[in-house]
Amino acid sequence: MEVRTIKVFTTVDNINLHTQVVDMSMTYGQQFGPTYLDGADVTKIKPHNSHEGKTFYVLPNDDTLRVEAFEYYHTTDPSFLGRYMSALNHTKKWKYPQVNGLTSIKWADNNCYLATALLTLQQIELKFNPPALQDAYYRARAGEAANFCALILAYCNKTVGELGDVRETMSYLFQHANLDSCKRVLNVVCKTCGQQQTTLKGVEAVMYMGTLSYEQFKKGVQIPCTCGKQATKYLVQQESPFVMMSAPPAQYELKHGTFTCASEYTGNYQCGHYKHITSKETLYCIDGALLTKSSEYKGPITDVFYKENSYTTTIK
């Protein structure tokens, strides 16, 4: 009895394709271990004539594949690729409408935090270190965002349907971005203890939790000093293409032309909904596939993004 075979390709990165001759009487799992086709788990399936010449994702289970996976995804987590594939199996079914010149995501599976993050990423200057993220990001900007969303979920250790947080998501993504040249110098002034300067680099240099107003941050924000008295913390120097200011959701007025974009969060910790506000020729609110415009805006804002380049204080 002759062994019926077909020729397929296996890959971990969709760049390096490895030619395989597979036995049609055995499952993919018996031949390769966990195997995925377009995100779908085909591990328990036997090869079919229609699979001839198709590319299958496999887990990096030998040295060659491990090197290829690390170079593309910059992670050695053995569960990463499987999590990416199972997320992709959902995100490829989502709709990605162009809204006001940006790629958004039609609401499904509690994905409003991903839509808000995706919209924000198209408006701030950011370059990702893992080629996987950078490639998928370019495709997302062009309207094909399924891979990018699935990668975000995998890097953030999230599953489809789980509630997510924009600030946490951005923080994970910033860790995989090139923020080497970003720098922030802060000064804390206390009447009792004097003053202390701190220099922050990388992710810490672009994120701040405690106030939404970048102007206020430049002037000074009140913080408790270690001595128990009130101290003032203010920005001395900022070198970065953008800054992200966050605070627990509270009524906040966004003035046209003073910011790049913002995240609105309605609801409580267990259950809520994100919308995205962007400042173009007027203010726009993007909620999944829905767009509304207004000249002014007041609502429960939790993150505001500002364009920056270089700032030095005039406070002496």
Results as ranks from 00 to 15, higher is better:
G228W: 03
A132E: 06
F174S: 07
Q196I: 11
T232F: 08
N16R: 11
L126K: 05
K255D: 07
D63F: 09
Q31G: 11
M245Q: 04
K275Y: 00
K307V: 09
D38H: 13
Q122V: 02
P34I: 00
L65F: 08
Q197D: 05
L200D: 06
C156E: 07
Q20R: 13
A136Y: 07
K158F: 04
L119V: 07
K95P: 00
V243Q: 00
Q123I: 07
G288I: 01
N309A: 13
L59N: 13
G53E: 12
L102Q: 09
L254I: 05
V166M: 11
Y284V: 11
K255G: 03
N14K: 08
T232S: 05
D109T: 02
S279K: 01
R141V: 13
F32R: 13
G33Q: 06
K218L: 03
N147H: 14
T312W: 04
N129S: 06
K293A: 11
P241A: 09
Y155D: 05
P249H: 05
C271L: 09
Q195G: 06
V243L: 05
T103L: 03
K183D: 03
A205K: 01
Y73A: 03
M244W: 04
T91F: 01
Q98W: 06
V243M: 03
A136H: 10
T302N: 07
N129G: 08
Y252A: 04
S295Q: 15
A115D: 04
Y28R: 07
V221C: 07
T312C: 08
V22R: 04
N111Y: 01
E71P: 06
K54H: 13
A289H: 15
T198P: 04
K293V: 11
L163S: 10
S50A: 12
F174G: 03
Y297M: 00
Q31E: 05
F128S: 03
K95S: 15
K293F: 04
Y297C: 00
L153R: 10
V304Q: 02
R4I: 13
V304L: 05
T91N: 06
R66D: 06
L119C: 13
V221A: 02
M245P: 00
T75H: 07
F148M: 13
D180L: 00
L121M: 09
S294L: 15
M207G: 02
Y172K: 14
V42P: 09
N14F: 12
E125L: 05
T75D: 12
V8D: 08
L121P: 05
D63R: 06
V12L: 07
Y208E: 03
T120P: 01
R139C: 12
A250D: 12
S310N: 12
A115L: 06
T27G: 04
L163P: 11
C227F: 01
N14Y: 10
K255T: 05
C182E: 01
N157R: 09
A115C: 13
C261D: 03
T278I: 09
S181Y: 11
N100V: 10
D62M: 04
G272A: 01
K293T: 13
A87L: 06
L173F: 05
Q251W: 10
A146S: 11
H90Q: 11
Q197I: 13
I277S: 01
A250G: 06
C190Y: 00
R141N: 10
S50I: 11
A140P: 04
V12G: 07
R139W: 09
L153P: 00
Q30C: 07
E68H: 09
L133P: 02
L37W: 14
R141M: 10
K201R: 15
G202F: 03
K95E: 14
Y57G: 08
E52K: 13
F174V: 03
V236F: 01
V188S: 07
N61L: 14
V67I: 11
F217G: 01
H276I: 05
V188L: 04
S263N: 14
C227N: 02
L65Y: 08
Y234G: 02
S310F: 15
T27N: 13
Y234W: 09
G272K: 02
V12T: 08
P248M: 07
C193I: 03
T120A: 12
L235G: 03
Q195S: 15
C261P: 00
M24K: 09
A205N: 03
S294M: 15
L65D: 08
E204Q: 12
N129V: 05
Y72A: 15
E281R: 03
M207Y: 04
R139Q: 14
P60Y: 07
L212T: 01
A136F: 10
L126A: 06
N157Y: 08
W94S: 02
T260N: 06
S171R: 15
H256E: 07
F217K: 01
E125F: 04
T258I: 06
E253D: 12
L114E: 06
T19E: 09
T75R: 10
T314R: 15
K92S: 11
S295M: 15
D63N: 12
D62A: 09
P78G: 00
G29K: 08
K201E: 08
L81M: 11
C112Q: 11
H90L: 09
N61C: 12
C271I: 13
T292D: 06
P300H: 05
A117Q: 08
F32E: 05
C271R: 14
T232Q: 07
A177W: 00
Y284G: 00
G210Q: 05
I286H: 02
T266H: 03
S279Y: 01
M24H: 08
R184G: 12
Q216I: 03
R4G: 13
N49W: 15
Y297Q: 02
T76Q: 10
Q216C: 07
D180E: 13
L212Y: 08
C190N: 00
I152Q: 04
Q122L: 01
T292P: 00
K229M: 10
D13S: 10
S310I: 15
T19H: 12
Y84G: 04
G299A: 06
S263R: 01
N268A: 12
E281A: 03
S50P: 09
N89W: 11
E253A: 11
K218G: 01
N111D: 09
I223S: 12
K280E: 05
E264V: 10
L173Q: 02
N268S: 12
C225P: 02
Q195M: 14
G101E: 12
S246R: 05
N147A: 11
G210S: 11
C193K: 00
V203S: 11
M209A: 15
T232E: 05
D287H: 00
K218E: 02
I223E: 09
F128M: 06
A289R: 02
S181D: 15
Q230H: 08
A142G: 13
S25K: 07
D23K: 14
P130C: 08
P97H: 09
Q175C: 10
Y234F: 08
L114Y: 04
E281W: 11
N147T: 12
T199Q: 12
S25D: 11
Y297N: 14
T258S: 09
C227H: 03
F305M: 00
G143L: 07
T314Q: 14
L118Q: 01
A250K: 11
M170N: 06
N178R: 07
E125N: 10
I6C: 10
Y252S: 01
P241Q: 07
T19V: 14
T43E: 08
T199A: 03
L200K: 09
L283F: 02
Y269P: 06
T64R: 12
G82R: 15
N49P: 13
F148I: 07
D62W: 09
Y84Q: 02
K280R: 14
K106C: 15
A146G: 12
Y172G: 13
T11G: 07
G164T: 05
S240I: 00
F259I: 03
Y297W: 09
N61M: 12
D13F: 03
G29P: 04
V22N: 01
Q31W: 13
K127A: 12
I223M: 06
L119F: 00
G194A: 10
I105Q: 08
F217M: 11
S295G: 11
H256F: 08
P47G: 07
V203P: 14
T312R: 15
M244E: 02
Q237D: 04
T103E: 05
D41F: 06
T55W: 07
Y84R: 05
Q98V: 13
E253I: 13
Q238R: 03
T312I: 14
N89L: 12
S294Y: 15
N61E: 06
I6T: 12
S25Y: 10
V304W: 00
L81C: 08
A231M: 04
T11Y: 09
K218C: 02
Y155P: 04
K316M: 15
I105R: 05
C193P: 03
L235F: 03
T199G: 04
R167P: 07
E2F: 08
L290Y: 12
G164S: 06
D135T: 08
Y84C: 05
S294T: 14
T64Y: 13
W94T: 06
F9H: 15
N268C: 08
G228C: 03
M170C: 13
D23Y: 13
D135K: 08
S294Q: 14
G101V: 02
G33F: 06
T313E: 06
K233T: 13
Q98H: 12
Y137N: 08
A289M: 06
Y269G: 07
